[in-house]
Write a protein that binds this DNA or RNA. Structure first.
Length: 432
RNA sequence: GUGAGAGUAGCUCAGCUGGAUAGAGCACCAGAUUGUGGUUCUGGGGGUCGCGGGUUCGAAUCCCGUCUUUCACCCCA
C-alpha cells in the first residue's frame, strides 16, 4: 500500500535539504551578527496558549489533539506565545534588552496555496524590554540585513512601514468612531489587493461621511509621516506618534538601508496583537505575499500573565522567501553543492584492504571521505568520485604495496602527486 | 468552507476528431573501459495512463463520481 505525503507538507531530499539549510544558516548568522541569541521551545503547547489572543476562529486552523491525560494540546502555529511564556517565567533574572531569535518549525491547518504550506520554517527575532523606536528600526534593519546579504537589492524588495498607534490617532482625529477601528484595519490590510474603485466603495460603506472618507483616502496617499498635518490637525498624541515614526526612519537612514524603506499607511498587519510600529517587506512587483512582517506588541507579555514590558519583533517564513530567491536566480547559484574532500579508490583488488584503512584514517583526521562498495575498474571509481563532487582522489595501487605511497589526484586540475601514506595521514591512533 | 484548472515512467512532458504492444528527454543501472573521472556511444530496468463507475466493438482520449494537487477567495498569528 502506497501512502501519500500529508497535504501541505514537503519532503526534503538532499537538494531541497541543502537549500533549506542554506536559508536557515543565513538567518542564524545574520541574527548573531545583529546581536541576537538563539532560543527554542517545545513544538507543542497547551491549546489555550493560542486561544488567549486569537480566539476561536484561529483554533480551527490549528493542529490540535488530546494527550492520554486528556490535556488539550496544539502543534505550535507561531512561536511568539512560547517566547512570551518563556520570558515571563524568568523575567526577573533576564538581562535586558532581551534580543532573542529562533527558527521554529510551525504548522497551521490552512489550505495550502502559493507561498503558504501547512508546515514551514519561520525566522523570528524579538527585542523585549525596549520601547524606543530604535528597537523597531533594528528589527527592520536585521530583516533587511539578511535579504541584502543573500543578494536582494532595493530594486527587488521594499520594507513598508507604518504604525498602529499613528493610524489610530489619525482616525480619531478625523472623527471615526472607536468601534469602527477594527473594521478599518481589516479593510486597509486589503487595500493593496483590491482595485482602487472597489476599495473606495468599501470605504464608503464603512465610513458613510464623505468628508471623513476623503480624509482617510488622503491619509493613505501620504508618502511620509511628516505630511500628516495636511490630513488632520496635529495634537499632542499625533505629534508623538509622528515623531516615533520619524525616529524609525532616521535610524534606518543612519544604518544605511533607507533606500529599502517607505512609509505606507495601509500596512496594519491584520487583527494581530500589534500596538505600535508595524511593517511588512514585499517583493517590489507585489506579486507574492509578504516576505516577512512584524511590529511592536507592547501588551503581549502582560496578556500572558507577566509584567507590562514592551516588545517588538518580526517573523519571516521560508516559503515566500524561497520562491522569490528562486525567481531572482539567487538560490541555486548560492546554495553550496555536495562536497567530498577525498574519494579513496583502488587500482587493484589487492589494495582493497588498504582502501578501508586509508578512508578510516582520513575520516579520523576530520576529512570527509568515501569509497566505492563495488570493486570495479578504476575508471568506474573515478566516475563515482566525480558524481560525488570529490575534490581529490586517493588512488591505491602497486606503489602502495611496494613503498606505501599513495597517488593523490586533484579532480579539478587532474594533476597527480605521489606521497607516502604517513605524509598524508597521521599514525592510526596517534594524537593528531 | 467557496470557485477554477491539472493528474500519463523518479522528474519535465508528448500522445490528432476514441483504434492494435503507451512514447521522448533528463535521471537511474549496466557495458564500451581490468591504472585514470566529467564528454560520447550502446543496451537495460521502470507505467493498473490517480481511483471507481458509465458510454462504446474498442477508452490515456468522451461522460459522471471520487481522491490528490495547483491557483484564487475566506483567513493570514
Amino acid at each position: 500500500m502506497k501512502i501519500p505525503p500529508v497535504k501541505g507538507t514537503r519532503d526534503f531530499y538532499p537538494p531541497e535539504m541543502a537549500r533549506r539549510n542554506w536559508i536557515i544558516d543565513g538567518w542564524k548568522s545574520v541574527s548573531i551578527r545583529n546581536g541576537f541569541e538563539e532560543y527554542d521551545g517545545p513544538i507543542f503547547e497547551h491549546l489555550m496558549m493560542y486561544q488567549i489572543k486569537s480566539g476561536q476562529e484561529i483554533v480551527e486552523q490549528l493542529f490540535s489533539f488530546q494527550d492520554r491525560g486528556g490535556r488539550d494540546l496544539a502543534i505550535r502555529p507561531e512561536i511568539t506565545p512560547t517566547l512570551a511564556r518563556m520570558v515571563n517565567q524568568q523575567i526577573n533574572s533576564l538581562p535586558r534588552p532581551i534580543k532573542w531569535f529562533s527558527v521554529p518549525r510551525l504548522c497551521r491547518a490552512e489550505r495550502p496555496q502559493k507561498g503558504r504550506l501547512r508546515e514551514f520554517f519561520q525566522w523570528n527575532i524579538d527585542i523585549i524590554g525596549i520601547d524606543s523606536p530604535e528597537a523597531d528600526a533594528e528589527v527592520i534593519f536585521t530583516s533587511l540585513d539578511y535579504l541584502r546579504m543573500v543578494g536582494l537589492t532595493s530594486r527587488d524588495v521594499r520594507a513598508k512601514i507604518s504604525s498602529r498607534k499613528l493610524l489610530a490617532c489619525v482616525l480619531r482625529g478625523i472623527g471615526v468612531e472607536e468601534g469602527k477601528f477594527d473594521g478599518m484595519y481589516a479593510l486597509l490590510d486589503k487595500k493593496a489587493k483590491l482595485p482602487a474603485d472597489t476599495f473606495e466603495a468599501m470605504l464608503a460603506e464603512q465610513v458613510p461621511d464623505k468628508e471623513q472618507a476623503r480624509r482617510i483616502s488622503d491619509f493613505l496617499a501620504l508618502n511620509s509621516a511628516g505630511e500628516i498635518e495636511r490630513v488632520v490637525p496635529l495634537n499632542d498624541e499625533i505629534r508623538a506618534a509622528v515623531e516615533q515614526m520619524q525616529s524609525v526612519f532616521a535610524t534606518l537612514e543612519l544604518m544605511g538601508v533607507a533606500e529599502y524603506c517607505v512609509f505606507d499607511p495601509a500596512i496594519v498587519r491584520g487583527l494581530a496583537y500589534y500596538t505600535g510600529v508595524v511593517f511588512e517587506i514585499h517583493d517590489i512587483v507585489g506579486e507574492l505575499r509578504a516576505i516577512c512582517g512584524g511590529g511592536r506588541y507592547d501588551n503581549l507579555l502582560r496578556d500572558f500573565g507577566g509584567p507590562a514590558i514592551p516588545a517588538t519583533g518580526m517573523g519571516m517564513g521560508d516559503c515566500v522567501l524561497e520562491i522569490l530567491l528562486h525567481q531572482k536566480g539567487l538560490l541555486d547559484s548560492q546554495v553550496p553543492p555536495r562536497r567530498l574532500e577525498y574519494f579513496v579508490a583502488c587500482a587493484d583488488a589487492a589494495c582493497a584492504k588498504a582502501m578501508y584503512s586509508v578512508a578510516a584514517r582520513l575520516r579520523a583526521a576530520g576529512h570527509s571521505a568515501n569509497f566505492s562498495y563495488k570493486l570495479g575498474g578504476l575508471s568506474k571509481q573515478l566516475k563515482e568520485a566525480s558524481s560525488q563532487n570529490a575534490a581529490r582522489c586517493v588512488i591505491i595501487g602497486q606503489e602502495y604495496l611496494d613503498r606505501q605511497e599513495l597517488v593523490i589526484k586533484d579532480m579539478l586540475s587532474g594533476e597527480q602527486t605521489q606521497v607516502h601514506v604517513n605524509q598524508l595521514l597521521p599514525e592510526p591512533g596517534g594524537t593528531t
